[in-house]
Amino acid sequence: MTIGKEHHMRSAVSAADIAPTAYAWEIRATGLKVRVGRKRMAVDGLDLSLGTGVHGLLGPNGAGKTTLIRALATVLRPAEGSLELLGESVGGMGELRALRRQIGYLPQEFGYYKRFTVREFVEYMAWLKEVPKADIPAAVQRAVERVGLADRADDKMKVLSGGMVRRVGIAQAIVNDPTILLLDEPTAGLDPAQRLRFRELLQELGTDTCVVVSTHLVEDVAAACTDVVLFAEGRLVFQGPPDELASVGGPEHVGDSPLERGYSALLQGPKQGKGTW
């Protein structure tokens, strides 16, 4: 055999790729409480286990969706209870660098630098996410192509439309090939055709990634999610496949689709009647 020496060879499959996982769930929360401000518990005693797949996080405004996503992104620390991401406990004040390298995050308010080109911005994010230097150009190109912005990659961010900026946000979230992908309202500002394409991308990502998508658009969930997490007032109301949520609703409930009727059936308490916000 005269194939290269071992130290020169770069194997096509790395040891990390074939290592067995040491956790049962990518995301596992037990009795999780997250405080917002001084007093309010926006997430109040949440038990949740999420594995690979696309999980739609549904709930009314103010239900604590953004706070939960921020806690999952490790920028807010739990006040009580435990949160385990990829088998690693998140709590205390550690820096969690190794864990964060495997997380992709699109915040609800996606801020960016207007003077940067799309490529420069995604490259900057890849650098912040500690993608190895040699892999950055290829990773950036791949991420930009996946969101369909390859032809606009060298345009400045300030000339892009709202939907395109949102897609840059998705590109920066997936540039490090995350194992946990957190998207807070990713479809806001996308037109219907872009939304369809985005759902395809979600399904594609969901085959090997734990994707958590927060949204208040029920139809997004129906089309792209393998699992619905219904969340209200900081607590879990329902978790299961979309069909199951649809089956809860009856004709007496408010909504235009079975899923919407299921949603209102679970969220409408006996006190709340039609016509109230």
Binding site: V75, R100, R101, Y105, Y113
Partner: peptide, 18 residues
């Protein structure tokens, strides 16, 4: 002053080093 503050804070490189 930094529009990308939340992204920066969530990155692995965030923290004392940055």
């Amino acid at each position: 002053l930094d529009p990308a503050y939340e992204l920066t804070a969530s990155a692995p490189r965030a923290g004392l080093y940055l």
